[in-house]
């Protein structure tokens, strides 16, 4: 039974990583940039949600909606302030700017909300019990959101005109501009969606991780690891990679001393990437140069 407990907690852990990983995937696929501030954006989302709850807003869907809207707007501002000024210097400059933003966001939310993580009431209280195994509704909602967001992103990027325009803008901006795609608008939309997703994730995971604190860096590292493990360019890949990472971590934690889990996971990641450079489930041929 203990293995099943670990499987459930591992799936939840992996789903939390997946929500961050999907943000990495979305930005990378649509802009060619790796945004290392993704984990701290999740923390900001959780803190915005907590503020609304503390102001007396108790309807879950309204809180989620307001936080996602705030995330979308913050994403547009993030693009204008952080990404746009770096565009002439290439993707590497933009990535360096996002690394800087991890510090700005982390210190910023410490200044506004304080450095302590804060308890967040369960968004969906209760759970189901299958004998000695208990699965919380909170976990099930996170699993469902991961699936829904994954499917939604796959459809957006693979089937919709806008999504294809976004991918085209990232793949070849000049050619995309020549056929009428507004590259700047597509990039802003990408960052808005990524921040909105992070904000949604923040509210969903805060009852488990607590809101605020210094968890942003850990979320970034694990979300990025999951995404790379599965294949950063594949929607299915980042979800499966992150889930696998969460499950493996949980199972290893049961048999290895705590301090050895992350080193073992990262060594395994390096070996896997040596053998499969595009990740376990990544596209064989990279679309992006």
């Amino acid at each position: 039974m203990h293995i099943l407990d670990l499987l459930v907690s591992g799936l939840t852990l992996g789903s939390i990583y997946a929500l961050v990983a999907l943000g990495f995937h979305l930005v990378f696929k649509m802009t060619g940039i790796i945004d290392f501030a993704q984990g701290d954006k999740v923390v900001i989302g959780g803190l915005l949600g907590l503020t609304l709850v503390q102001q007396g807003l108790s309807t879950v869907m309204v809180v989620l909606l307001l936080v996602v809207v705030a995330g979308l707007l913050l994403g547009i501002a993030y693009d204008a302030i952080v990404i746009l000024p770096t565009q002439r210097n290439g993707a590497l400059a933009a990535m360096a700017a996002t690394v800087g933003m991890t510090l700005v966001l982390a210190h910023g939310h410490h200044l506004v909300w304080g450095p302590d993580p804060k308890p967040f009431p369960p968004v969906f209280a209760g759970g189901i019990e299958l004998g000695p195994l208990r699965v919380s509704f909170q976990s099930m909602v996170i699993w469902a959101v991961v699936v829904a967001v994954g499917v939604g992103l796959a459809l957006l990027m693979g089937r919709s005109r806008t999504g294809r325009g976004m991918v085209a803008a990232a793949t070849d901006p000049l050619a995309a501009t020549a056929v009428g795609v507004n590259v700047s608008r597509m990039r802003a939309l990408s960052f808005a969606l990524a921040f909105g997703l992070a904000a949604l994730a923040g509210v969903l995971v805060a009852p488990i991780t607590l809101a605020g604190g210094s968890i942003g860096t850990a979320l970034t590292i694990k979300g990025f690891t999951g995404a790379v493990l599965g294949g950063l360019n594949s929607t299915k890949g980042v979800v499966l990679g992150a889930l696998l990472l969460g499950v493996v971590e949980s199972q290893l934690a049961a048999v290895l001393p705590n301090g050895n889990v992350d080193p073992v996971v990262f060594v395994a990641l390096v070996i896997i990437l040596l053998l499969m450079p595009n990740g376990l489930f990544g596209l064989r041929r990279q679309r992006l140069a």
Binding site: H2, D5, L6, S9, T12, L13, I208, T209, L210, S214, I215, A218, S250, Q251, A253, A254, N258
Partner: peptide
């Protein structure tokens, strides 16, 4: 720095 301690508790 982590938040899931199911394995240790188990």
């Amino acid at each position: 720095a982590k938040f899931d301690f199911t394995a240790q508790a188990g």
